[in-house]
Nucleic acid binder design. Structure first.
Length: 641
RNA sequence: GCUGGCGUAGCUCAACUGGUAGAGCAGCUGAUUUGUAAUCAGCAGGUUAGGGGUUCAAGUCCCUUCGCCAGCUCCA
């Protein structure tokens, strides 16, 4: 049979040759690293004999599919160990996830994390035995008999679904553990030496809270102990950077408790961070052609009915009953901006009209989902709404994408872009006319293409009211977060009958885009804290400079320096307490103040100052002017776009 | 919301099977005038998250409410 390789070379093999043999033929190294193969688009195990001509790709841990196969395999291994230790266990599902895998078990009286050691030991034992995964295809009826015998009610449920979907049935056995599974898997347990069991949690069968809660065990596995260690230390580092710990420590904010769950109280230092971010945002928006507006926190329920939020978002809204009418706290800013757009008859000459507001919104979130600044009940959306004509769509989208990337660049975030389109199989799910979708979806793709940006298209992920572009931002630990989002809306312009008068004197339906760049100011600050491990860029630092006179006799000079810096808009203070210099430096370091200026007798005499920079230590003495120049340059706000 | 875990001073943590709530840091007062990550001494700080119960006796055991954490579902 003739086999094609990704580099478009071709080679002849005997029918029945396996993927592993082909990998070995290319190089012993590849055979060692190979996990699975992709043959004619289908993922297969390495030991499966190939019988026809086709193209092959040998997949290793570096390939997403290879990584998934290893992790998924490890979930089987863990399940096999659990079965050995807890024979009555029933099995749910055990997929690979972003950074590892999990398996859901129905175990009677599971003691919890304390038995991870035993499970891990059993896994290691099975790894040493190097037990092979054995794949078997069978009919639905055979599979039903097999799993009924074992009392695997969850598997039987899955089986029925597979049958209804007309899928073929395959099972994999690993020693005594037999699982319904499409595969593929790595060849044997010997591949999974570098695993770690991480945590346990409850999870409902099929994610439905009406179902029984199963015990979920999370773990991860890597191709090398080095990579495993790196990952585990990243998790440690993430814990250290947790904004819920750093934020209160640095005096930035307090959340919840007496103040109410999910509600943020910004302390003075945190308020400075917020104001800096918001001021920069406002200036940048004005420069980018937005008009700033401001809308009330509450609005009559009628407005939310027209916008339809009342019907599909009611469970997340707070209501107020006053006077004769009912009001709701705004969960979104759009209706407010609509009121402003509709305030007068609009002409094409006014378009594109870009309205922007840092609008505080309130959403009732279930208590269990609250999480630091990332998930709260009151937050500030850096909202913007663009009203434009069809011809302006591509250019406006490009402007917004560029603008969003500008904000990510300021903070050195990486990013990836996702374009979410409608599901053509389910057209009734969506608001707006099909022809509007037909116009806008290709325009979004074209906007990104023309900019040369890479993006992933996700079919069926569009909001019901329109397609969207989501930018995921990548932080210093390589984690992705929800970042800027740009969403078309066909629903609101229709519901509110938003129009403009065109050159032809006729009224036309306006196109509308929602966009948020920080997303939520609160969440964004949470991201910044973790991204920078609390060492915010100097322009955001609540306290930028502390001046440390060594003795009281330098106080006069210290005040002189302070007034120079203060008049240049630098946030600084003098720490003249009668503590040792070491003590005061330590305190400045732990509170992450970027610059320390130390003044002793020597410095005062020579009109110099000793500069110390947070994290990098003593910079020695220098002319006062020079030090001030360094501080001012360090604290300079980012250039506007 | 659901399942599980947790809740002791502003923070980090002690208090054996129920038997007088205790330290370090931070705070305050005083001494010290200091040269690049912790000077010394003293003082103060608590209805052990709130409520109820069992007991001669509850931080500890039971019930309940609240809050926090992990996960599920959802999401900016």
């Amino acid at each position: 049979m003739r086999i094609n390789f990704p580099d478009s070379s071709t080679k002849e093999y005997d029918a029945g040759t396996t993927g592993l043999e082909i990998a070995g033929d290319i190089s012993p190294g590849l055979a060692r690293n190979a996990l699975i193969v992709r043959f004619n688009g289908e993922l297969l195990g390495l030991s499966e004999p190939l019988h026809e001509d086709g193209s092959i790709e040998i997949l290793t841990f570096r390939d997403e599919e290879g990584k998934k196969a290893l992790r998924h395999s490890c979930s089987h291994l863990m399940a096999s160990a659990v079965l050995k230790l807890y024979p009555g266990t029933r099995f749910g599902i055990g997929p690979s996830i972003d950074d590892g895998f999990y398996y859901d078990f129905d175990i009677q009286d599971f003691p919890g994390i304390s038995v991870f050691g035993e499970i891990a030991d059993e896994m290691k034992r099975q790894i040493k035995e190097n037990i092979p995964f054995i794949r078997k295809e069978m009919s639905y009826e055979e599979a039903v008999v097999l799993f009924e015998e074992k009392g695997e009610k969850y598997k039987l449920e899955l089986l029925k679904e597979l049958r209804d979907a007309g899928e073929s049935i395959s099972v994999y056995s690993l020693g005594g553990f037999v699982d319904l599974c499409r595969g593929p898997h790595v060849r044997s347990t010997g591949y999974m030496k570098n695993f770690e069991l991480l945590s346990t949690a409850g999870a409902y069968w099929r994610g439905d809270e009406k179902n029984k809660m199963l015990t979920r065990i999370y773990g991860t596995v890597f191709d090398s102990s080095k990579n495993l260690k790196e990952h585990l230390s990243m998790l440690e580092e993430a814990k250290k950077r947790d904004h819920r710990k750093l934020g209160p420590e640095l005096g930035l904010f307090k959340i919840g408790g007496d103040g109410g769950p999910g509600l943020v109280y910004w302390l003075p230092a945190g308020t400075i961070v917020r104001e800096e971010l918001e001021n920069h945002w406002k200036k940048a928006h004005v420069k980018a052609g937005y008009q700033l507006v401001s809308t009330p926190h509450i609005a009559p329920v009628e407005l939310w009915k027209t916008s339809e939020h009342y019907y599909y978002y009611r469970d997340n809204m707070y209501f107020l009953n006053m006077d004769k009418g009912e009001y709701a706290l705004k969960p979104m800013n759009c209706p407010g901006h609509i009121i402003i757009y509709r305030n007068s008859k609009r002409s094409y000459r006014e378009l594109p009209m870009r309205l922007a507001e840092l609008g505080m919104v309130y959403r009732y979130e279930k208590s269990g989902v609250l999480h630091g600044l990332m998930r709260v009940r009151g937050f500030t959306v850096d909202d913007g709404h663009i009203f434009c004509t069809e011809d302006q769509i591509v250019e406006e989208i490009q402007k917004v994408v560029r603008f969003a990337l500008y904000f990510l660049k300021i903070f050195n975030f990486g990013y990836k872009i996702e374009l979410s389109l409608m599901d053509p199989a389910d057209p009734d799910h969506y608001a707006g006319k099909p022809e509007e979708w037909m116009k806008v979806e290709p325009a979004l793709a074209r906007a990104l293409d023309e900019m040369g940006e890479d993006y992933r298209t996700v079919i069926g992920e569009a909001a019901f009211y329109g397609p969207k572009i989501d930018i995921k931002m990548k932080d210093a630990l390589g984690r992705y977060w929800q970042g800027p989002t740009i969403q078309f809306d066909f629903n609101i312009p229709q519901r509110f009958n938003l129009t403009y008068v065109g050159t032809d004197g006729q009224e036309h339906r306006v196109f509308m885009v929602h966009r948020a760049l920080y997303g939520s100011v609160e969440r964004f600050i949470g991201n910044l804290i973790e991204h920078y491990a609390g060492n915010l860029p100097c322009w955001l630092a609540p306290h930028q400079v502390v001046i440390l006179p060594i003795t009281k006799s330098q106080l006069g000079k210290a005040e002189e320096v302070e007034s120079i810096l203060t008049s240049s808009d630098i946030r600084c203070s003098i720490d003249g307490r009668s503590e040792t210099v070491g003590y005061r430096i330590r305190e400045a370091e732990t509170s992450k103040i970027p610059f320390m200026l130390i003044l002793g007798e020597r410095e005062v005499e020579s009109d110099t100052v000793s500069l110390r920079i947070h994290g990098s230590g003593d910079r020695g003495s220098m002319k006062l002017d020079e030090a001030i120049e360094i501080v001012m340059a360090g604290c300079r706000r980012p250039e506007l776009p």
